[in-house]
Write a protein that binds this DNA or RNA. Structure first.
Length: 503
RNA sequence: GCGAUCGUAGUCUAGUGGUAGGAUUCAAGCCUUCCAAGCUUGUGACCCGGGUUCAAACCCCGGCGAUCGCACCA
């Protein structure tokens, strides 16, 4: 554990040093739970998001939206967040520890099982005055609710509103319009990448638990009488690491391998659910995760949220321990029905093959960008070795902050000018270019490696005479001469193929 | 939020009641056709507020932040 705690410390140092991310509002002493992305971090975050768009939106011909962040109270009343996105809390009057009121009452009062209503909690505390005590023996105050949403006032009359706690609701509220405008057919899937907000009591672990974070969510709307998934046949034998319910006892984790087809056969989930688990697995692999350190966990029945009929999380092993990076939920018609009843609009849609109207069911996948980025940083971090006397990142080209580095071998004899010309050419071919001309060439290769740049193009005397450059591959440091005319295509092709060695 | 520890250049780190050194980074120059070479020069810091004191970055109090542990994490 001593080694692994050194890893996130090292990642934090590198992040501060190389501008991946840093605490927000630093001149004022930072604000807990908020982080800014710096130049390298932004490039990488965008690539992680764009790889997601490609995998979950474009390749599947789904829809993407961008909904507003500030959300009126009634929407979140419908979603259940106003009432359920809360913790009932009591405070010990002696040691001032804050305790979950429902947990404490259930532990101290025989037979008490909380029904989710504050009334009943207040009642049980009133009836058992002096018996529900803290570990230290102190008495508690009356239970109160702590809502994890950021509240604000909209307009001159300060109508109640909140910063959204998830991006999903903006998709549900747009469902009717999108359905009418884009095919009037189920299934339909809509995704969104955007910021969400949760007022955590104590944010921890850098990017793992933030108060403001970015989610990538997809809502798949389907006819509840048809759980078949187009394209399932092709991926049914894809195998993933999986933690079944009976493999989790305390810290004990018995991870097995399972295929998409087996998940369905064993009744853990339907084809739709299993299909997206495969997509997630492929996405993580492409993003540079060490898949031996990832596993899908079937949530225990008590852990399943209020809206869901079944959940499977993606969990990733990091130096902070196991963290949840993706939540998958079968939300049924919970959200649409709730919006139907509060908005008085009809959310049922006509299903041609059955000649009737149904409220669609929803499968949701919800991924945290920041946690993913953090995990990738950890999984791709490489210590110095005999071959490489510096620390570096083994990012797949698809998510590396810069596609390519461009260096003149020396600053003189027109090499700088030529190098700038080539950098401009690569930028015009929409590559992100890391350009540097100061210091020795070896030092600059090291700098490029340190932020995981897969290729380094060097301009030397031969470039001026023969119109060719050298391309250096990050992972083995080997080089090859490439004609300038072929350079952009070569970098693009290598990047798309994930090539990181000359071999 | 509680307890313990901590807060010095971009990063890492030394240090003393009399305003600070080192390493590395970065910038400029010399040198050098290829993997953190060398030389020269330069930029750059004591978290914030209050108190004690002739004097505080150092001591005390409060705040903010960080780490670990506890709790929390629909």
């Amino acid at each position: 554990m001593a080694n692994s705690s050194a890893l996130w410390e090292r990642i934090m140092e590198v992040s501060l040093q190389r501008s991946f991310f840093y605490p927000s509002n630093e001149p004022y002493g930072a604000t807990s739970g908020f982080y800014d992305y710096g130049p390298a971090g932004v490039l990488m975050k965008k690539k992680i998001e764009n790889l997601w768009r490609k995998t979950f939106i474009y390749d599947l011909n789904y829809l993407e939206v961008e909904s507003s962040i500030i959300t009126p109270e009634i929407v979140l009343k419908a979603s259940g967040h106003v009432d359920n996105f809360t913790d009932p809390i009591v405070e010990c009057q002696k040691c001032h520890k804050k305790i979950r009121a429902d947990h404490l009452a259930e532990e101290k009062v025989q037979g008490f099982k909380w029904d989710g209503k504050m009334e009943s909690l207040r009642q049980v505390y009133a009836e058992n005055k002096g018996r529900i005590t803290c570990q230290c023996g102190g008495e508690t105050n009356d239970p109160y609710v702590f809502n994890l949403m950021f509240k604000t006032g909209i307009g001159g009359d300060q109508a109640a509103g909140y910063s959204r706690p998830e991006t999903a609701q903006g998709i549900f509220t747009a469902f009717l319009r999108l359905f009418k405008n884009h095919g009037t057919k189920l299934p339909m899937a809509v995704g969104q990448v955007g910021r969400s907000f949760r007022n955590e009591i104590s944010p921890r672990n850098v990017l793992v638990r933030m108060r403001e974070f970015t989610q990538m969510e997809l809502e798949y709307f389907f006819n509840p009488s048809n759980h078949a998934m187009k394209g399932f046949e092709k991926i049914k034998d894809y195998r993933m690491r999986y933690l079944p319910r009976d493999g989790q006892k305390g810290t004990f984790r018995d991870v097995k391998e399972i295929s998409a087809a087996e998940l369905v056969q064993q009744g853990i989930c339907d084809e739709i659910f299993a299909f997206f688990l495969v997509k997630e697995w492929e996405y993580y692999k492409a993003a540079g995760m060490d898949m031996g350190r990832c596993a899908l966990r079937h949530l225990l029945s008590g852990e399943t949220p209020h809206y869901s009929k079944g959940n499977v999380d993606m969990e990733v092993d990091t130096s902070y321990g196991i963290i949840e990076t993706i939540g998958n939920a079968y939300r049924t018609d919970f959200d649409l029905s709730q919006h139907q009843s509060l908005s008085k609009k009809d959310f049922a849609v006509f299903v041609e093959e059955e000649k009737k109207k149904v409220v669609p069911h929803v499968f949701e996948l919800s991924m945290g960008v920041d946690r993913t980025l953090f995990s990738v940083l950890e999984h791709c971090f490489r210590e110095k070795t005999a071959e490489k006397d510096w620390e570096w990142f083994d990012f797949p080209p698809a998510i590396a902050p810069y596609d390519v580095a461009v260096f003149p071998l020396m600053k003189k004899d027109g090499m700088s000018e030529k190098a700038e010309e080539i950098a401009a050419m690569l930028r015009a071919a929409s590559c992100t270019v890391f350009y540097s001309e100061s210091g020795s060439i070896g030092r600059r290769y090291a700098r490029a490696d340190e932020i995981g740049t897969p290729y380094a193009v060097t301009i030397d005397y031969d470039t001026l005479e023969k119109a060719s450059v050298t391309v250096r591959y990050r992972n083995d440091g080997k080089q090859e001469r490439v004609p300038i005319a072929e350079l952009a295509a070569r970098i693009k092709a290598d990047g798309a193929g994930g090539r990181v060695t000359l071999g």
